[in-house]
Design a protein around this nucleic acid. Structure first.
Lengths: 337, 337
DNA sequence: CTAGACTTGGGTAACGTTACCCAAGCGTGT
DNA sequence: ACACGCTTGGGTAACGTTACCCAAGTCTAG
């Protein structure tokens, strides 16, 4: 086997089959205009020589690459990886491949990736990146973009699939209040995406509705990346050490909630006895944790599917709704019983 | 902003700048052969019109796409997503994008993806897919391939990065024996990848070395997909219900181990008191679980990095070692204390 | 003053496809 | 016998790049 043999091209197939390039193209794309015998001959040559069409050339000619770009914060997070998996599936079913870009919520990185994707002439982009805004100058040719779980700045132009974050924050907090909590901490990242901020608003609303004060001291912000749960665990440990008083925690996501659970256990604080905890996403972590975590369930599979459908419509030229809101629901487990 | 404006091409840049296409190309690729003034003029036009080179055309011309294909079982699994994240990073640093393909360990799907990747003329492939073998007929043009965490069938030709699976199985089992276990169950998938089978061999070796019998009844095979931990939980529950006796469990990975932990708790069996458990991968799940899981740690970041380096060398034409073995180490936590 | 080298830039043939237009051969209806 | 249409297939210009070759102008050395 020749290690560096170049793949065979249509021209060579044509020569071997004794027909023209045009005919080979027609056979491959099944465009009528050829006899049954010709088809057989061409297909045999293709089969025998393992010809595989060059999509780069095809893409150049047709001005479409059948490739989708996906900008995602961190595929290591259960919620995002589920989203990515489902999106990849849905696109694969429609004949698209997906280029994945982990931008770590870093705007600089995000811009760079966006540029690359456009340079690669992807047919569309699924953007789960926060804080990155693209003006028309940065999106030449106006590649179709759909945001998922993120709110685009050009909200009047760019469609998105988001979940009921505010409502999620509200029901989580409401639930804690119902279970008797009065001093509920909110754990979040420093510079959070809009979706996360909404959860904070829901939290505040619920407190307000029950005549509770949203004490700023109860807001716990995590510095830097919130990848693994370590930051959350350490930060909460610090807060506890410095005498913070609370009887409930609403965490912006399950990773943080799990970190909190561990910090509480380290400090000998019982859950749900002394403190009750609610997470967000209902990811795999919430069922694994002990006590099992009450969490606001989201539907990443559904969000992915809808985002794909939207993007495919956009690529087709079919207009789509600007906003598709996927509901959330509270899953009650041991951490608040 | 025209919604469907086509991206501007080099020809247009050339016209606007009053130079030839060749000159624009030279300026972009910084190939000498032009004056400082020309560079300025061209760069200004590029800047003002937001020109972004068409990589499809470039790829066609240069016969390289700066794209890598990655076939992975399921990006939702913590181990694989870490691998994927690191690989994507490493490739991005070298100017490559990565196409991701979740084949769910399904050979049919894997073949299909492989075809697509080749059609897209990726410069190389990272394969974490098991059980899929590609003969030369299926890999026209011989795209460079590197296997990671999987053993290729054409082992004399295809390089791979694997971890010390056998050794991992051995030390895990050894550890359980040292802690007093005598009837150690092995939980695994039905049709496992070779890497997993090695862990089983390590397990058997350790038993043997201590004069213990590898009772086939202690082998617990999980049907179907082992994605979330549910299968493991249910299967073990069944085994317990039907009176299986054991005092230790070695699970092929952490997801399964966590399922086991939950089944044991459901059945009122104490860990590590009555039964001790060891997982594999030392993924995020092992620290979250209660009791925290003793696990054989692997180094997905390192494996990804090495795989990338190998593939880049191959693309360069530099020869590489056929096999790169990454060590493992036991991380002892509560589940075996 | 002129030959040669160096600098700057243009022209153009690929790369592998597809889409369009054209042509040859054959059958059919009148 | 002829006009016409259908079937089958060839030729070729793009698509947006890069690489090569060539040319005109400028500079330098003799």
């Amino acid at each position: 086997m020749a290690k560096s043999s170049k793949p065979i091209s249509m021209r060579e197939v044509a020569e071997l089959a004794g027909v023209s390039i045009a005919t080979v193209s027609r056979v491959i794309n099944d465009n009528g205009r050829f006899s049954e015998e010709t088809r057989k001959r061409v297909e045999r040559v293709i089969e025998e020589n393992g010809y595989i069409a060059n999509q780069a050339a095809k893409g150049l000619r047709e001005a479409r690459t059948r490739t989708i770009g996906m900008i995602i914060p961190d595929i290591t997070n259960d919620f995002f990886s589920t989203l990515a998996l489902q999106a990849e599936r849905a696109f694969a079913d429609e004949g698209y491949s997906v280029l994945i870009c982990n931008d770590a919520n870093d705007a600089e990185r995000g811009r760079h990736y966006l540029r690359t994707l456009i340079s690669k002439r992807v047919d569309g982009i699924i953007c789960i990146s926060g804080r990155t805004t693209f003006d028309e100058h940065e999106v030449p040719g106006n590649v179709p973009i759909v945001y998922v779980d993120r709110f685009p700045e050009r909200a009047d132009e760019i469609p998105r699939v988001i979940s009921e974050d505010l409502e999620g924050g509200r029901i989580a907090t409401e639930h804690l209040i119902e279970r008797g909590c009065r001093r509920i901490a909110f754990m979040t990242g420093t510079h959070s995406a809009q979706s996360v901020q909404s959860r904070g608003i829901g939290y505040a609303r619920a407190l307000e509705a029950h005549g509770l004060e949203a004490d700023p001291a109860l807001r716990i912000e995590l510095e830097g990346r919130v990848r693994r749960f370590r930051e959350a665990r350490e930060t909460l440990a610090g807060a506890i050490a410095s005498g913070m008083e609370f009887d409930g925690i609403f965490a912006m996501n399950d990773v943080i909630a799990v970190g909190a659970l561990l910090a509480l256990r380290d400090a000998g604080i019982r859950v749900p006895g002394d403190v009750k905890v609610v997470g967000f996403d209902d990811s795999i972590y919430s069922s694994i944790a002990t006590p099992a975590l009450t969490s606001v369930r989201r539907f990443p599979e559904q969000m992915a599917k809808r985002g794909c459908d939207m993007l495919l419509s956009l690529i087709d030229g079919t207009p789509v709704e600007l906003e598709d809101i996927v509901p959330v629901e509270l899953v009650v487990r041991e951490s608040t019983q």
